[in-house]
Design a protein around this nucleic acid. Structure first.
Length: 257
DNA sequence: ATGGCTGTCCCTGACAGA
């Protein structure tokens, strides 16, 4: 069974690519971020026609997350947002699939360490940590997938010195990532893959993808209880090569049954 | 060099992304 995460940078624009990618891969569970569409215009009919069920949490213009599940798999216990955290920005949705708690997150970008958005990022990360801790206590088999907007280590960045201390790489953000890990989670990609220059996002500008100058900021964290079932975690660069791509590309985790 | 792309809404230029 495969679980994937993909920041599509507008589901309206990328819907044909999502449908194509699901047909190509047959991935069973796909978490999407940056829908950039209001709750009531989500393309449920097209997704159902492709053989998937969906739960989503959208808003106009910005943010928005969804979980797609291949029928006849079902989703239960859907929770939108972080309970108890009154956040106008719709960034989190969770559901249970085949006994596994799936949390899909579009983490705050933060813009820059001296931006007003940066303290919001740290506050949001703290709220998420509390939420994930509570979810882990209730659901030992758990995955936290999404666009983290955090490059955990220098090796996750094409130019570590140039990025040092910058947003995505600053120590408070990396500390927050490590606190998530300390809850009893592992970065599934690093369970298997130690190769250099593996990224999940490349800037649209300056041919950064062709030059492979990117950052690894899309992650799938797997709980300790579930870790033994993890087989491989891979970054699928194919959709990044398609016409009019998202700036992110999917990350896939394979679990055995 | 605060540029360089892309998407959204609609003040078609400003904002946000990362």
């Amino acid at each position: 069974m495969r679980f994937a995460t993909w920041n599509v940078n507008s589901l309206k624009v990328r819907l044909p690519q999502v449908i194509q990618w699901l047909a190509d891969t047959g991935v069973e569970v796909l978490c999407l971020q940056e829908l950039k569409m209001d709750q009531d215009v989500f393309p449920l009919a097209e997704i159902e026609a492709a053989g998937y069920r969906a739960a989503w949490f959208g808003q106009k213009t910005y943010n928005g997350v969804a979980i797609l599940v291949k029928a006849p798999l079902e989703m239960s216990e859907v929770v939108a947002g972080i309970p108890g955290y009154d956040d106008e920005q719709r960034r989190v949705i969770a559901a249970t699939v085949n006994g596994i708690r799936v949390i899909c997150g579009y983490f705050v970008n933060g813009e820059a360490v001296d931006s007003p958005k940066y303290p919001y990022k740290l506050e949001w990360l703290s709220r998420l940590e509390g939420y994930v801790a509570a979810e882990l206590a209730r659901y030992p088999d758990l995955l936290l997938l999404g666009d983290y907007n955090i490059a955990p280590e220098d090796r996750d960045v094409y130019d570590p010195e140039g990025w040092r201390g910058q947003v995505l790489c600053s120590e408070p953000e990396r500390d927050a990532f490590r606190r998530l890990i300390a809850l009893g989670l592992s970065d599934s990609f690093r369970l298997f893959n130690q190769e250099e220059k593996q990224y999940s996002w490349w800037d649209y500008r300056q041919m950064m993808f062709r030059r492979n100058k990117g950052v690894r900021i899309d992650h799938i964290l797997v709980s300790d209880a579930l870790k033994a079932r993890a087989q491989v975690c891979e970054i699928d660069k194919a959709p990044r090569k398609w016409e009019r791509p998202s700036d992110h590309t999917p990350v896939i985790l394979h679990l055995n049954d």
